[in-house]
């Protein structure tokens, strides 16, 4: 030890490398090299051959083909982006609302919590695909039976009930897709609810006490106390939700990429995946930039 004569700090640093060493080797093999390779693929025409991949340079041809020629890619892309744009805020608001409710004390709270987190363990698997397919897409009678609860008619009827006829068609359409998708949304909120719940429980008791003494109503309490304290977690949940929807293997862009892969067009599929990833990065980056100015940090 004396021979090497390392300072305490440097020695600790070396141990740090030791701890992450295993991961680094793995990341190199299973992540970094594949990422670089696939980036290279996106600029080549790649065809599989025995024992290797034959690559012929193609320049930006693959990217051009993805956006200009492929009939589905652009359509799916706008669809997924649009869907994420309206679903994310709804998911955030809804999970905050649920978190506030199950943070209160009432009979059966433990049960309610267990149920709300249930989607976390089921929603990522094929079971979810089957039950949502059964319930909403395959057009069976049982699907009707379920969706009547949230059907588009409900929105129309409600508007007519209030006395609004022939109201803006587009708006009712948006509303009805929102209500009919409620099943999907509730099923996507598990993690977000947990995150909000832990944030709610971290609100300092002094703040609650002060608000109580001042006579704040629940409404005021929400806007003046809850929201600022929870705002860092809104950012976390926003990013999580966006990534979760973007990376979900059942989303249409992802399916398209896989289809192309199955046709052995590795170059094209790599180009698609990379342009998709670039879009994710831009969206997440923009949200970070905007939200960081709004978020309240308690110090």
């Amino acid at each position: 030890m004396k021979k090497l004569n390392l300072s305490y700090e440097r020695k600790k640093g070396l141990y740090g490398y030791g701890f992450i060493g295993l991961w680094f080797i793995g990341a190199l093999i299973f992540f970094i090299i594949p990422v670089i390779k696939s980036f290279i693929y996106s600029f080549y025409n790649v065809t599989p051959d025995i024992g290797q991949l034959v690559m012929t340079p193609a320049g930006v041809e693959n990217y051009k083909r993805a956006f200009m020629i492929d009939p589905n890619f652009r359509v799916y892309l706008t669809e997924v982006l649009g869907q994420t744009a309206w679903q994310t805020p709804v998911i955030i608001v809804f999970s905050l609302f649920v978190a506030i409710i199950i943070n209160q004390e009432f009979f059966g709270r433990t049960f309610a919590r267990a149920v709300f987190f249930l989607p976390v363990i089921i929603a990522t698997g094929p079971v979810y695909a089957i039950i949502t397919g059964d319930l909403s897409t395959s057009g069976t009678a049982d699907a009707d039976q379920f969706s009547t609860m949230f059907s588009s008619n409900m929105v129309d009827q409600l508007l007519e009930f209030i006395g609004i006829y022939g109201f803006n068609d587009k708006l009712t359409e948006v509303l009805s897709t929102m209500t009919s998708d409620i099943l999907n949304l509730v099923w996507k909120c598990g993690i977000q609810i947990i995150v909000f719940l832990s944030a709610l429980q971290a609100i300092p008791p002094q703040a609650k006490e002060a608000a109580g003494i001042e006579g704040a109503t629940a409404w005021e309490f929400f806007w003046k106390i809850t929201l600022p304290y929870v705002s860092p977690m809104i950012l976390v949940n926003l990013v999580y939700t966006i990534i979760d929807t973007f990376v979900d293997p059942s989303n249409k862009v992802m399916e398209r990429v896989l289809q192309i892969q199955d046709d052995w067009k590795y170059g094209l599929s790599a180009a698609m995946a990379w342009s998709y990833f670039a879009i994710i990065l831009v969206v997440v980056g923009a949200i970070f930039a905007v939200m960081n100015k709004i978020v309240y940090y308690d110090d």
């Binding site: 299973f30 594949p34 696939s38 293997p249």
Partner: peptide
Amino acid sequence: IFMILMPPQIILIPQ
């Protein structure tokens, strides 16, 4: 962080 963000499709074929 990139491992979290990156869609797994990107690295599938090299893997």
